[in-house]
Design a protein around this nucleic acid. Structure first.
Lengths: 207, 207
DNA sequence: AACGATAAGAAACGCAACGTATCTAAAGGC
DNA sequence: GCCTTTAGATACGTTGCGTTTCTTATCGTT
């Protein structure tokens, strides 16, 4: 056993810690994440971690944010509903792997630490590959004349993720196809039609 | 100091513990809830609590469920949007007092304890005063001919609570009036119109 | 190449809360 | 008034916290 492993510093060490934290998150989840375990796994010690992050929440968020979202290929099933179903299940698949438990756990602490809440909120409301996927899908539907032209409020672009996170955090179990279908059929598609109709109506009234 | 306080048992003791747990929840939140503090506050001891509940999550849920929702007076501002705004802000006011942090915290543990997830899910999807308030409001709007008649899927009845919980858990801070207005104007009202339109369209096609 | 500032790594700290086990004596059922 | 149940008290070992102290490897500078 070589005791000669060189002593890491700076960015290299930071990466190793974040990798270890991510692995721990995947194995035991946020609730059982301990600084000590992360330190052990990264082959370092607690003070090194505490010098960089204030606590579990910051560390977990840093580890999470570093995982770059895999850019997803464009999709076009030919119908709005079909595209949305694919999008929703992609989100759900990615979501239930990890995110929800981390989000839930971190949120619990965000209650007392506004700066953590801010980090989290910022991350989850920022435009993302996901919101632009929504734009593309709706744009395609409009081009197909499945929908009248419409403006998407930011909140509506975020809604798929919010719906899925909500559902998935409450269930614990992975979302079923029926649930995803219900989100699309009972909520999102009607919402898009309603938005388009109301915007059209407002436009007509203005003339 | 009278050491003669009678020794409570059974239901009476249970109430006292749940009251103490609820008070602790309001004071320090779920993240800092400790069994020891609850025991101390209730004037009892840890084993008594562990004999009844398996851990923090179960205790917190029990304390929460026991708090009966205050039945709210009927509301009728004369418009769908107005009624919804009142409803949403009522929910938000009640929600951010406690619920979110407990839900977030419990969800963090639900990840590893399916039976807790089930309890929580059951509680949050069950018909409630809230879902019937939605029914009433929408019913009134239909009666006023603000909306065509429509069936509300269960998911749509639950949506106001879900939207507010989502927003409120992410923000940490109490929801602003603008946020509530955005939920109503960008999401819920369009959704109702879209649902009505699609249902109407489906009906017409069937004939 | 030697020096000095920086920061990693190891160890130990007191603290808080965990969940459990043991014991006593008080309450309620019969 | 006996007897089963169980509340309440106490103490236990354990875990992880967040911090402190100290040694020494690494890096930038001269």
């Amino acid at each position: 056993m070589s005791e000669t492993r060189s002593r890491r510093r700076g960015a290299q060490l930071e990466q190793a810690i974040l990798d270890a934290a991510w692995d721990e998150l995947r194995e035991v989840g946020y609730a059982r994440l301990t600084i000590e375990a992360v330190a052990a796994r990264a082959g370092t010690s607690k003070p090194v971690i505490y010098r960089r992050w204030a606590g579990r929440a910051e560390l977990a968020l840093a580890a999470w944010f570093r995982q770059v979202p895999v850019p997803q290929g464009v999709l076009d099933t030919g119908t709005l509903r079909g595209d949305l179903l694919v999008l929703f299940s992609r989100i759900a698949r990615r979501a239930d792997s990890m995110m929800n438990e981390v989000v839930a756990g971190v949120m619990g602490e965000a209650f007392r630490h506004p700066e953590i809440a801010a980090l989290l909120h910022d991350r989850l409301t920022r435009p993302s590959p996901l919101t632009s996927a929504v734009e593309t899908i709706v744009g395609n539907a409009v081009a197909r004349a499945e929908l009248p032209p419409l403006d998407l409020p930011e909140r509506v672009k975020r809604l798929p993720l919010d719906l899925i996170r909500n559902e998935s955090t409450l269930c614990g179990t992975p979302l079923t196809d029926e649930t995803l279908a219900s989100l699309v059929d009972d909520v999102y598609v009607p919402l898009l039609h309603g938005l388009a109709a109301l915007q059209e109506r407002a436009l007509r009234k203005r003339d």
